[in-house]
Structures are given as structure tokens and as C-alpha cells.
Design a protein around this nucleic acid. Sequence first.
DNA 1: CAGTGGTCTAGACCACTGC
DNA 2: CAGTGGTCTAGACCACTGT
Lengths: 234, 234
Amino acid sequence: MNKYHDVANKINLFIQENNLTRGSKLPTLTELANTYEVSKNTIIKALEVLETNGVIYQVRGSGTYVRGRHRKGFVNLTDVQGFHSIFREFNLSSKVIELKEIEAPSNVAEILEFTDQEKVYYIKRVRYIESRPFCVEESYYLKTIVPYLNEEIASQSIFNYLTEDLKINIRFSDLFMRIGKLNQEEAGYLELETHDPSLNIESIYYLSNGRPFNYSLIKYHHEEAQFFVQGNNF
Amino acid sequence: MNKYHDVANKINLFIQENNLTRGSKLPTLTELANTYEVSKNTIIKALEVLETNGVIYQVRGSGTYVRGRHRKGFVNLTDVQGFHSIFREFNLSSKVIELKEIEAPSNVAEILEFTDQEKVYYIKRVRYIESRPFCVEESYYLKTIVPYLNEEIASQSIFNYLTEDLKINIRFSDLFMRIGKLNQEEAGYLELETHDPSLNIESIYYLSNGRPFNYSLIKYHHEEAQFFVQGNNF
DNA sequence: CAGTGGTCTAGACCACTGC
DNA sequence: CAGTGGTCTAGACCACTGT
């Protein structure tokens, strides 16, 4: 663990434990540098982490303040781990509809950027939050990166399996979202009517060396899909 | 303009002018430091900017590479200036439905965090992209921050007016998104049917001192709403 | 194990806020 | 104009990648 991540966590804890609310002022940079016994620049780095995570904001010439505005039930889209980390607190489960090893269809091959035929795992599953159907997911994993996958793993958190068991480092992701309409099958899974709207998110996940290894198309139940994005300007 | 922003722009230009594609390798940190005649740390800062903007990614021990994946017509949600900057290339226009100065309704007062009665501008407008109706927007601006607004300004880019004429610095924003249904009036503006779905985004914009000054509820035409989010993990 | 990105420091100086 | 965050530097050292 880096020093600045460490300090960031400590400051974050400090905010939570003291119940600091929006607008509360934190100590100055030099004070923080003294109390955590690191250089001023390391404090700056730590606060930078907290700023991009939407925890604080800094005002030049004035001070550092707590940002913290949350709305319950909204999932942060900016966080790559989004769903997985936030839903740890909820009772999240999955039902696997289909799991097979196939040659990648051409559109997926194009997205995942390979020219030769490559094997992928195809998974279709319905995800439930507190036993309410939440989304239908179709996902393709490059077999060279994810050599093994079974129904038991897919019925739990694939993300945890990738990061904790396979030690895969997910570095960044591209999400594309738009509104779609459910077909009869999907509507059935989500307990909705055919042609009801859904929030569709196509996502591509990349390894730390920049290679795309997963493509997913997720259709969210229109009443359950609630997302937020924290923008920063500079 | 800072040195590192300057360098970031130059590197960005370099990428574009040389048509560097996904995966292309950039020079090393020390080489970049030499060619742009700044310290290594300033290069790191510059590359950090490009990384959070989704232009490049860096692999420790290996190098810096071009990320660049775009899909036409998708609006970047992470960028505070999102709509305004990207649509500069399109023919974007607005029709003002209503513009008035009112006491803030209680829900807006709560969101914008004031307890006393305060005046706000309320604006309702329909926005068109290439003359196709794109979204219906209802927006509230704190009058203490935005002292004047008229129909002419509102029919163009309010964002430009705020930043360029009033010299207001927007620092960050919170966006909340979900699917909604259009009422009869809204459907009329968007040339859709009543109860057709829409992508609704509630947004709160904050000044550089952390004060919220604007709240908007925007309902997007379901066929035109296409957004993307670039996630970074660390 | 050479090459490359990442962390950390100490310190000088700049730019902005708010009294 | 005092206080506070932001930029920039030079340099030491660490951690990871890929051959």
C-alpha cells in the first residue's frame, strides 16, 4: 500500500468518524503533513485521491472541504468496480441462463480487437437485488485471459473471481448507455411487459496493459436503474 | 495557463497530428521531459491529465500508450462541460418555453442548500440537435449567483454565458440518472407519444467554492440519448 | 536485468480567498 | 496582506514489465 493511499484512507476515516458534513473544513496541508508525518506533496496526492472520489473539494486560498452528497440506491458509474463494491451491502444474486464456450461472433471480435478466431466464454444471466430482478446481462470473456469459468462462479460475483482468484487487474472501462426495448424473453426475466423500456449499458473492460478482455451488454430494469456520475472540472 | 496543462495540450496535439491509434507507444517520461523542457514530475502531471481524460493509459515498467476509443454521437458524462463542448460541432439550438423569476420551491431550496427564501430563475426549454428535438430541460439558477438572464441568452448556450460573460467557475457536478415516462406536454415537445420512455438526468452544479447554484432536470429523447463514461481504476 | 513508470521528499515560489 | 492551496524542480529510490 502506498503512503498516499494510506493517508487518503486515514483522512477518509477521520471524516466519517467525526461525522463531518458537507462544507466542513479540514486542517491545512501543512497541518495534515505534520499529523500524518509525510511531506506536503504526499498530502496533496492523498487529497487528490479523495477529490476524484468525490469525498472532498479544495478551494485555492481558502481550504479543503467535505463534499459528500449521496443519494441512496444510486450506483456510481465512474467507479470501475461500481456494481460489485456498492452491492456488497445488498443481497445480490444471479441466475445463470446460459454459459458456453464459443468462437467469438464477429462484432465481439471487433470490439475486443482480435483478428484470428478466438474462443470466448459467453454468459447470459439475470441478476437480482434483494430478490427483485434487476438486470439481464450478456457477457463475453476472452478465454486466453479467463481460462476457466463455470456456472457456480457465474452465479456469484464474476468480478471477485477475476480480481481475487485469477489476480486479474482491471485498469479501465468504457461504458456506453442508451435506452432500449425489451424483447419477450428479457421482459419475462425482468417481470415486465414486452417492449417495456430498459436502460442498456454496453461496457468494455481493459486489463492494466490496455488489452480489452470483456464485453458486456446489460439491460437494466427501468425502475431499478439508478446511476450517478460525479463530474470534476479543471 | 499552467505548464502541465500546456504540455498536456501539446502531447494531445502530437497524438492527433501523427494519427496515433490505440496502443501506439509514446516516448518515455525522460524523453518527454527533455523535448518539452520541463521536469519529469511535470510530465507526470501532464500525462495524468490526459489519462483522466481517457486519452492515454500508462503501464508501469512498460510505457505510455494511446487509449483513444470513441463512438460517434455519444456524449461524455464525466466532463462537466459535456453537452456544450461536444455539441459545438453540431447545430444545437434551443426554444424557450418559459422563463420567470420565482421564489424557489421547497425541493429546489433543499437541493441548493438554503433555508431562507431565495429568488431563482426558472427556465424550461426544448433543445434541438440538427433541428431534431433532443431534450426538455427544466432548470433553476440561484439569482444571487446569476443576477440576470433573458430569453435571448436562454435560447443559446447558458453555459457559455455563465463561464464567459459572468466569469463563473463551475467546479464540479453531481448527475443522477434514471428512466422516466413523458407526460403529454413533454411528449409533444419531443414529437413522441405520451408515456414513451425518456432518460432523465437530474444535475446539480457547484461553484469553485463548493456552493451549489443550479439544479436541472433534463428529459432526453430516448432515441437521441447516448452517453458514455470512461472509468479509471486505481 | 535493463528500461520505464511511480512514489516521495524538501524547498522555492506562485495564485487565490477572505478578512 | 496573512493564510492557504497549487505549481514546479532536482534528485533519490521503488516497483513493475518484458526480453
